[in-house]
Design a protein around this nucleic acid. Structure first.
Lengths: 281, 281
DNA sequence: GAGTGGTCTAGACCACTGT
DNA sequence: CAGTGGTCTAGACCACTCC
């Protein structure tokens, strides 16, 4: 019944890759250590160099190693992860009540990354688009206008992207304060929460929707991602007291240097609750 | 100064892959549609079939297409995403107060996936290990024992993994109820929240730490993942009223069929707050 | 300059899909 | 069965690193 008569020998490049992966997991190859050269692997496994190339390519695609011309492949060194916590939502909301001096320099720009504000080149770009497919989330018509704000921070030295996000807000909600429609007012002290407060909107709930995907070739270049590193995609939906969706913000985070934290406080059980029934034993 | 005299022509396989990717993004190639064969691509781009293979392999590694022997590669069809919301934490906590009848069938097993409970084969395995590197998070000694509980659900028809998680709890915290140490009591009606309640522990805060990584070859097989699909990794840390870490739970989610939702309620501004100062204009 | 990995070719064999 | 993609080889040229 089983189409395979016995266990079929796995392809040579998979066996080579698996062997190296196990050496890495066992710690025999430490981060930063050099792997055998393609020629050495080919000799050891009695196969062509193209097969060893395929094995190395697979490990690169899995994010385990890095390689480049002229030098042996090395075990990938995990960069320190930057933590981005959902507690920031409350912090940003509280900031609205502070003085402009306190809010200064806490615009959308600086909140995106926890490191070296001085070494970031920050750009923001505003335009207006039809809501289209996003109309359903906002509960508006597809022809209604959204203000689209694109934010990007790059490292001017390396030319690499450090953060990226796109924000959408219905123009009808905010046009009573024309300053909100003008990108020349970026960076806005206090960020989006304060911007919305100027038109009487208070965010009461934030929903973060998280998934991941592989970057395209150009995205990998833009972020300076080595092969095999996914992008974590987070869509933040901000909702006001009336349950109205006010803002949607999409952001990408490189998985090798980012960890998203979400804190969920739970309501206490009533003091007078009956003791839960035992189970088992 | 620039080492590149002019723009260097990108490698042929990247140009082919990029061309196909743009066709997909523009909608000229719909999900499920067949791509040109390797031979057709080779003829169209005047290159060898191995180069077209490399292009197809790259698109597979980026999760855009699927391919297999004997048939043309096709544009990947995105499976419907299962939503796993952090609001479940509160739901599970509330469940502890319900009757055993209400709690029945809501163990760790069924909470992992939102679909077809009948078609899951569920396994759980308990053992005890030294805390080791996790001691720091729990605030215990590395030699102290942790109860490790491994949960896995598989589709008995396809033989594929549907969910997977590992939970760690200090044995010292729960050994006063020996039933908690015995895997034969799985599935426990009401799940971990109820188990902890039997030893007087109430979870007051849950922190979810989220990142992503590429699966290894065997993980891709186990989950039935096609190439280029990352695994979203979520570490859930459960904390009681005294700020003590009570449980750590690690889980993987296939990024192509999972979306993690995190809801953050925000505290209201005081009614008497001063009007925020305007900005710009 | 020697050695490395990256790119690319031509060609072979095999497993699998369709008809 | 013909046609497809998957695997694999041998060999070439190039860009890059290190000595």
């Amino acid at each position: 019944m089983d189409p395979r008569p016995t266990a079929v020998q796995a392809p040579i490049h998979l066996r080579i890759a698996d062997d190296i992966r196990m050496q890495i997991e066992r710690g025999e190859l430490e981060p930063g250590a050099s792997l055998p050269t393609l020629a050495e692997l080919a000799a050891r496994w009695s196969c062509s160099m193209n097969s060893t190339r395929a094995a190395i390519a697979l490990l690169k695609a899995q994010g385990l190693i890095t390689s480049g011309r002229g030098k042996a492949p090395t075990v990938r060194i995990q960069p320190r992860k930057v933590i981005r916590s959902s507690e920031r939502h409350q912090v940003e909301k509280d900031l609205v009540l502070k003085s402009e001096a306190d809010r200064a320099g806490i615009g959308e720009a600086e909140t995106n990354l926890g490191i070296s504000i001085d070494n970031q080149r920050f750009t923001s770009r505003y335009d207006q688009i039809a809501a289209g497919e996003m109309a359903g989330i906002f509960g508006i018509n597809p022809n209604d206008l959204l203000l689209r704000r694109c934010y990007e921070a790059t490292d001017p030295m390396a030319g690499l992207r450090l953060s990226w996000s796109v924000s959408y807000m219905p123009v009808a909600l905010i046009e009573s304060n024309p300053a909100l429609l003008d990108e020349r007012n970026e960076p806005w002290p206090g960020g989006t929460m304060h911007q919305l407060s100027t038109v009487g909107i208070e965010i009461m709930r934030v929903v973060d929707e998280v998934t991941a995907r592989m970057p395209t070739t150009v995205e990998a270049q833009t972020w300076g991602l080595s092969n095999g590193i996914p992008l974590v995609f987070c869509r933040r939906i901000s909702i006001d007291g009336g349950g109205r969706v006010v803002e949607i913000s999409d952001a990408d985070y490189p998985a090798d240097r980012t960890e998203l934290h979400f804190v969920t406080p739970l309501k206490a059980w009533p003091k007078s609750r009956r003791k839960p029934s035992q189970h088992g034993l």
